[in-house]
Amino acid sequence: MSDADAPHGATPPAEKTPEHGAPDEGNAPTPDDASAVAEKVDEIPMGGVPEPGPTGEAQRADDSNLLTELPDHAEHRDLHGGHATTTGLSNNKMGMWLFLGSECLLFGGLISTYMLYRGRQADGPGPDQIYDIPFTSVSSFVLLMSSLTMVLAVSSATRNDERNTKLWLTITALLGATFVGGQVYEFTAFYREGMGFTTSLFSSSFFTLTGFHGAHVTIGIIMLMALVGMISRQRVVGDKAEVVELVGLYWHFVDIVWIVIFTLVYLIPA
């Protein structure tokens, strides 16, 4: 059952905020668009909160000169043709960062469960007897490489080079598939060596932790393949480079989580 990530797990719907202003992505940002101006509004000094004493009137006076030269909010754009946001970061990207924040807590919980139960293998094989460190370090290296190819994909997407974007996305998906293939092999080998899911506390917490991470990598691979399909059929909604960047964010997150898991689970001796 896919874990509890919000539909953000799939290609984050390229949601365009329903801010006012024409939705068609076609029109190029108007030349005089000064997104910097949007920021200036935020830098109004803390005085925004009227100190005790100055009446509302006085306080409003010193603001008005600031506001006169602000263009009407309606045609406000940020650089990528998306809608202007108060913090300048696009909604989708902020949404993805928040989602990754909550995923940290999820993996934090799983890792602490593993650390508590790692020494309790009851009658089953212990961690040092069963781990095959050389193999796992190679598969970790493969996942690291997939992060590299993901970066190449994102850079070619920003350069609007569609051919290379699709290429690097496919390569990242293939490397991810290799990693997951390695994990399936590792799980089967452990099972053959007498460590099933319910053998001991150590085994069930190990399988839960690495299983969750494997599921997240698989979802990432599906997102990558879907993205390649959608780009080649021009079905990507909204700003293409940003969607690739979002998938890149997710992929790098999954990769970093694996680095943490790899060191804590495999490298630190029980």
Binding site: V49, P50, E51, P52
Partner: peptide, 15 residues
């Protein structure tokens, strides 16, 4: 309580 007095001073707080 509201006994028809004018709108009170809009004080924002005394730190």
């Amino acid at each position: 309580r509201d006994r028809g007095q004018p709108i009170p001073r809009q004080t924002h707080g005394r730190p």
